[in-house]
Computed example of a mutant assay.
Amino acid sequence: MNAEHENPSSAPPSPEETTPAPAGAPDGDKPYMRVIKSYVLRAGRTGPGQARAYQQHGPKYLLTYQPEPLDVETAFGRSAPLFMEIGFGMGGATAHIAQVRPDDNFICCEVHEPGVGSLLKLIGENGIENIRIFRHDAVEVLDHMLGEQSLDGVHIFFPDPWHKSRHHKRRLIQGPFVNRLARHIKPGGYLHLATDWEPYAEQMHAVLKAEPLLVNTAAEPGPHGCAPKPDYRPLTKFENRGIKLGHGVWDLIYQRV
């Protein structure tokens, strides 16, 4: 990802890579295809404010990954529509959305420690109660802690575009991953993707169109099937700068059938 993107989490490893199966896995004596991951871990420094936020707010808002179903109502202390955000970067957009949609619950996955600390800091400063965070791979959270048709929607904003052609296989938005997401979304729920890199928007559109469980919500789709930006998604500082420079941003919103 380039420095302008807010979301430092990104794509799966190359699908052709293999590694020995871990002990205790089925057919543990055989090689297996490496599983999809929703991120590439980036280096970064956690500042003192973020470190304090971990100490002050982590016990309440951080969830621990464990390979068993999550009791969502207990985690949030209430029952409400459940949405997942994958790779929230420094958490600014996430905090905004949670505040303008207080009746929804948000499960947020990010492996970048400073980003998690930043969102915890925003939660504390703004008294946000409807966010819970996994500092863990979203794919494992989906597969082991959230059942199919358990989500009302999924947000993935500005994933790493992996500009070079030889790196396109590392992009997060690929057919198998989108199918996995679609199966976890309830009928009538949605998948909302956003990117500021047009070739990636074109790929996203192709992948989404090919997924039979999803249909485009845009009544009059724009370029690459894009929809108007929903009011709940704020403009990031990088997006604002890009718009002033004439760069495009593409929001793709597809509904689970």
Rank of each mutant, 00 (worst) to 15 (best):
A3E: 05
S9G: 11
E17D: 14
P22K: 13
G24V: 07
A25D: 12
D27L: 11
R42V: 03
A43R: 15
T46L: 11
G47R: 12
P48D: 13
G49P: 05
G49I: 10
Q50C: 14
R52V: 14
Q55T: 08
Q56T: 09
G58S: 10
P59G: 09
Y61A: 02
T64L: 13
P67S: 11
P67A: 15
D71F: 12
F76E: 04
R78P: 09
S79N: 13
S79Y: 10
P81A: 08
L82F: 10
L82H: 05
L82I: 14
M84P: 01
G89A: 08
G91A: 09
G91L: 07
A93G: 04
Q99L: 08
V100M: 03
R101Q: 15
N105S: 12
C109F: 12
V111N: 00
G117F: 09
K121V: 00
L122S: 06
E125A: 12
E125K: 08
N126Y: 03
I128T: 03
D143L: 10
L151K: 03
D152R: 08
G153Y: 07
G153K: 11
H155E: 12
H155V: 10
I156C: 13
F157A: 08
F158Y: 13
P159I: 10
D160G: 13
D160A: 08
W162Y: 08
H163T: 10
K164M: 04
R166N: 10
H168N: 13
K169E: 02
R170S: 00
R171P: 07
G175A: 14
F177K: 03
R180I: 04
L181H: 02
R183H: 14
T195V: 03
D196P: 07
W197Q: 09
W197N: 06
A201Y: 02
M204C: 14
A206W: 03
A206K: 15
K209I: 07
N216Y: 01
T217L: 12
T217E: 14
E220H: 14
P221L: 15
G222V: 11
G225L: 01
E239G: 02
E239D: 06
R241M: 13
G246P: 13
G248E: 03
G248Y: 06
Y254A: 04
